[in-house]
Design a protein around this nucleic acid. Sequence first.
DNA 1: TAGATTGTTAATCGATTAACAATC
DNA 2: TAGATTGTTAATCGATTAACAATC
Lengths: 207, 207
Amino acid sequence: MNENISMAVIKRLPKYHRYLRELLKNDVNRISSKELSNIIGFTASQIRQDLNNFGGFGQQGYGYDVSNLFDEINTILGLDETYDTVIIGAGNLGHALANYSCFNNFGYNLKGIFEISPRLIGMQISNVEVYDIDLMESFIEENDIDIAIICTNINSAQKITNRLEKTKVKAIWNFAPVDVVTKTDIEVQNVHLIDNLLTLTYFIKDK
Amino acid sequence: MNENISMAVIKRLPKYHRYLRELLKNDVNRISSKELSNIIGFTASQIRQDLNNFGGFGQQGYGYDVSNLFDEINTILGLDETYDTVIIGAGNLGHALANYSCFNNFGYNLKGIFEISPRLIGMQISNVEVYDIDLMESFIEENDIDIAIICTNINSAQKITNRLEKTKVKAIWNFAPVDVVTKTDIEVQNVHLIDNLLTLTYFIKDK
DNA sequence: TAGATTGTTAATCGATTAACAATC
DNA sequence: TAGATTGTTAATCGATTAACAATC
């Protein structure tokens, strides 16, 4: 396996995963890069190039076995393992993510939610308990948490990140509207929901 | 102004917008492409290239006036106008987005929320009323809605899109985990929250 | 075998970076 | 004026597409 896959390729993997899952659900057993191209919107050439970064999953004259290819992509994305997660911040977004079904479907297990507001501590959201934020570090250590999801306001996000850096979490998925930074090798994804909307606005502004 | 700006450039605009707003908040009046490079993480050369797609906003020997540059980006993104929106689906995500503050801050006005479940119809979320989904089309026409935000489940998203196609909405921002498609020239953004997480998982899988 | 389709190399295209003359 | 920094052209780099031999 090529060790230096370009970011452009990696970002397309979830889409392959999604469309292959759909094909599998519809009992399609076999697909050519050409057919996949038609439904996924990448060129057949790009599909073959992308897949060959990870191995030769197809067969000349036949195409790809959908089930097999799905499994390969699933493994490449690391979804053959499970991941334990916590959510920091039980506001509207934290609440929504805790209830987000896609989430559990892929092997992400939400173990706890952390909050500063006493009003929310002790509640159950989607069968997961809301704990005092002061317990965050010890909970992460004791439960081997892999991923922390930040749903705090903009002002707390970097402070929480600094605290998370000292724990064993491997990744931070940040929804607060700021780019949090780390000095360690924790993987960070800063999601800016609004960016998508601004891009939409760019295209409709003169309509 | 260049009429054919590449997608790569357009996708960077919201980040410029965000960082310039921050600078403005911190009373920074002036910035060079080199200084901006240090904080935003694009190269100085790329920053100058990007901005010059839209006009010469800087001054040789001086740099860029932050306030002026912010206004320019704001206008390029179409944020000098306001947009009326509706949310379809008052579940957890619809609920979270209705309460999402970033939203109102940029001139997006949420006018109504539409639901199929009688249990939710008539509620107020963030001072916005939840209406029967059957009223969606007439409401959009009467209120000149610009953007529809789909927060339904996966099965309803395309059906809602088909209905929206027949209205005057200019853009669809879809959060259901499926790529909805249109035959008209409505702008569509399919957001897949989970994709970000899968990418994170890719990077931590062997840690 | 003949037809189909991959895997892979080569060609093209587009985006980023470097360089520097223009100019504030 | 001298120094700084843009705007812009040219060079480089990387990603996408085309082509086709290999092979199922």
